[in-house]
């Protein structure tokens, strides 16, 4: 029983048959249980492929992906996902949207009808945590983009996943909303027993939130370097204005510029 929740061992993933694009090659990555990992890199470096490999939506042609010690050969239901596009279903209220994963995940869907009240309470509590108290009965299109993304995070967390995969969840939001949601996700990570992998283009976001920042190369993607981010938790937004923080961000920026130049 190792402490690592996700291991990716020398993985190759090629799309579209033998002559297709090689999206990632020789990819190695380890995420410890409870860790907050961020993945950054030049665009088109296979970050989304990484997401799909870990969640079991894609099975690699070569190499081994394990989640919680189990070899991934099919979708793993202990994972929650959130994308840049909140993909709330417009015909369901926010609360029903948040409850959706429970109607899918095998161990919950059997209990859902009988224990509906308990689950609704849980969802409402989650909504309260992200600052959406009282918005459960609203439809998604009655919420702002930032509020929809908060609800999206709740949906990703409702089934108590051990691993939360976030693919640029704050990319489409304005700067202030983004900062608010950084704090939301920071507090969620601190309060819930969850491991988070955040794929992002935003280096400041990565450094502010993560314990480790993984830098990916240009396509075919692999991890070039892992940076340990040492700032003490809980981190305040003001940490972003310290010289040390900017040094780390600048260092990362240089590495990604190099990775782009190589491509």
């Amino acid at each position: 029983m190792g402490a690592s929740l996700v291991t990716i061992d020398n993985v190759d993933m090629r799309y579209g048959g033998a002559d297709g694009t090689l999206a990632v090659s020789g990819l190695n990555m380890v995420v410890e249980r409870g860790e907050f990992a961020a993945v950054v890199g030049p665009s088109g470096c296979g970050k989304s492929t990484l997401m799909k490999l870990v969640t079991g939506l894609h099975i690699p042609q070569q190499g081994l992906v394990t989640v919680a010690g189990i070899h991934v050969t099919k979708p793993v239901s202990i994972v929650g996902m959130a994308f840049q596009n909140p993909t709330m279903l417009p015909w369901r209220t926010t609360l029903d949207n948040v409850l959706l994963p429970l109607e899918i995940v095998e161990r919950h869907r059997r209990r859902l009808r009988k224990h509906k009240k308990e689950y609704v309470e849980k969802a409402e509590h989650l909504l309260e945590t992200v600052g959406l108290k009282g918005f459960g009965s609203k439809y998604p299109w009655q919420l702002s983009g930032g509020m929809q993304q908060r609800a999206n995070l709740c949906r990703a967390l409702i089934h108590e996943p051990e691993l939360l995969m976030l693919d640029e969840p704050f990319g489409a939001l304005d700067a202030f909303t983004r900062e608010e949601l950084w704090q939301v996700i920071r507090d969620l990570h601190a309060s819930q027993d969850v491991t988070i992998v955040l794929v992002t283009h935003d280096l400041r976001e990565a450094v502010f939130l993560a314990d480790n920042v993984h830098v990916m190369s240009a396509r075919p993607g692999k991890i070039l370097k892992v940076h340990k981010i040492g700032f003490a938790r809980p981190r305040d937004l003001s940490v972003m204005y310290e010289a040390e923080f900017n040094d780390v961000v600048q260092g990362l920026r240089g590495e990604i510029a190099d990775a782009r130049a190589v491509a």
Binding site: K52, T55, G56, L57, K74, P75, V76, S77, V79, M81, A82, F83, N85, T87, L89, W91, L100, P101, E103, I104, V105, E106, R155, A156, H159, M165
Partner: peptide, 29 residues
């Protein structure tokens, strides 16, 4: 159907039937 929606549900172990009933059919109404 948005591919992201499908990914989110499939990652949870949704079968084709689940995606149709929960997303596809209401969406096509």
């Amino acid at each position: 159907i948005e591919p992201e929606t499908e990914d989110v549900l499939r990652a949870l172990g949704a079968k084709k039937m689940d995606i149709m009933l929960k997303v596809g059919i209401p969406r096509s109404m």
